[in-house]
Nucleic acid binder design. Sequence first.
DNA 1: GCCAACGTTGGC
DNA 2: GCCAACGTTGGC
Length: 150
Amino acid sequence: MNYWLMKSEPEAFGIDDLERVRLEPWDGIRNYQARNFIRDRMQPGDLALFYHSNANPTGIAGIMNIAGPPRPDPTAFDPEAKYYDPKSQPENPRWYLVDVRFKRKLRRIITLAELRACPELSNMQLLRKGNRLSIMPIEENHWRTILDLE
DNA sequence: GCCAACGTTGGC
DNA sequence: GCCAACGTTGGC
């Protein structure tokens, strides 16, 4: 089983939205590194931290699990969709998504500042300068350390 | 809103 | 293949 961190802007879709709908296709990923994590390494049953980016406060807001196998992102095929990509064809999809299921909200947001202040997490990819990846793996020891902060 | 850091695109 | 221009991400 793998651990992940997945970013979303709560103004667009936050942990409260996921709590309401319970199950959501995590669509719109248009970055190859993130795509490869989804397509090649995500499995049903994996756990993921729900990270609020561009938020106040920014940080980890909840936990979800990967609810199904990776599948082609249908929004890439839809000319009306915001993340339409004419280079992605149904017979040769370029972009993938997974469905995620709400597990729980954290009792409080674990802020980015707290993560930065935690020495055990100093080498996390999330905290590296210039990091913009919206989906990334989390090491098991980091996962435990983060949730111990709650 | 600003801006640093990246990723992508396209001319050559 | 190089690299400048441009677009996007995301913290602040």
